[in-house]
Design a binder for these strands. Structure first.
Ligand code: ZN
Ligand code: ZN
Ligand code: ZN
Ligand code: ZN
Lengths: 153, 153
DNA sequence: ATAAACCTTAGACTTAAATCAAAGGTAAAG
DNA sequence: CTTTACCTTTGATTTAAGTCTAAGGTTTAT
């Protein structure tokens, strides 16, 4: 059983945040002491870690709530409902990953095309890199130094 | 040459947003009419699309500015500068992707364990997993339908 | 000539997710 | 017994990225 301060330091967040989550109904301690102290179990801590992970990945608190709150309604919900919600998020994430990959490829192309030397970067273009990855353009010449003149002065 | 309203509708954003970006120095029209109307070229539009794409991926406007400043400044920058900045962003992105993958896997695990049927979610594996968040649970039995009674009634 | 689109500055409001502070307590630990 | 941790409520402030409104004016299009 953790008390609010313990859990907070354990998860590197503020007690304020935990009280905030509590008030929002997002993360309610599974019990209280007689005197009202919040008591969190290890399971609570795991749930919190789940929440925090979800957060760092870009889920909003509302979305996280949604996921967690199906739990409360579960006798009225079908497996289909639950699964579809998860699958929606899954599609979301997949798309984001895809877009990030697209970006990453473009930047990687740019980086590998760039000699990294002290000369002017006139011909290094992020926009062009992104354009070219989107349209699979003429990447025939062997990269940057063909386009660059500075390397072969 | 687009005027602010044209570009806005073209990219499905508000003119307000464009003026905002202008004021922030993030996205300045490449010219103005004599009378002061903003004029955007096709290149501007391209730049804007870049910005919007970057935004949906989760870059902040500041980060996007950084990315673009590489572009604007490039004649004053050396290849080394460009490359190091790009590589920094690359690391960023890679980390983001990694995190997203982590979460995707978690969701996929949940999703694939659920029958997705019309029955009560009372014993839905997804909810059970969220309840306990013990991701490494007894995954020995072949998943959801062992736990469920509804599938084999 | 009138409406629609644009210009400016300036400030208020919004949402999300906190964070901070203050007031006025109770409980737990050394 | 006193300090520290906790409780409550309320309200202010923060950051990001806009959005909205208003006032007062100019330009463009029909
Ligand atoms: Zn280069
Ligand atoms: Zn070079
Ligand atoms: Zn099922
Ligand atoms: Zn299920």
């Amino acid at each position: 059983m953790y008390r609010i301060g313990e859990l907070a330091t354990l998860c590197k967040i503020k007690t304020d945040t935990l009280r905030f989550y509590d008030k929002q109904g997002l993360f309610v301690p599974s019990s209280r002491t007689e005197s009202g102290y919040r008591l969190y179990t290890k399971k609570d801590a795991q749930r919190l870690r789940f929440i925090l992970r979800a957060k760092t990945i870009g889920f909003t608190l509302v979305e996280i709530s949604e996921l967690l709150s199906i739990e409360l309604d579960k006798s009225n919900k079908a497996c289909a409902d639950v699964k579809s919600l998860v699958d929606l998020k899954l599609a979301d994430i997949s798309q984001k990953i895809e877009q990030l990959h697209y970006f990453k490829n473009a930047l990687q192309q740019l980086s590998s095309d760039c000699c990294g030397g002290p000369e002017s970067a006139q011909h290094c273009s992020i926009l062009e890199a992104l354009e070219s990855t989107s349209s699979a353009k003429n990447r025939t010449n062997n990269g940057h130094h063909q386009a660059h003149s500075h390397a072969t002065k």
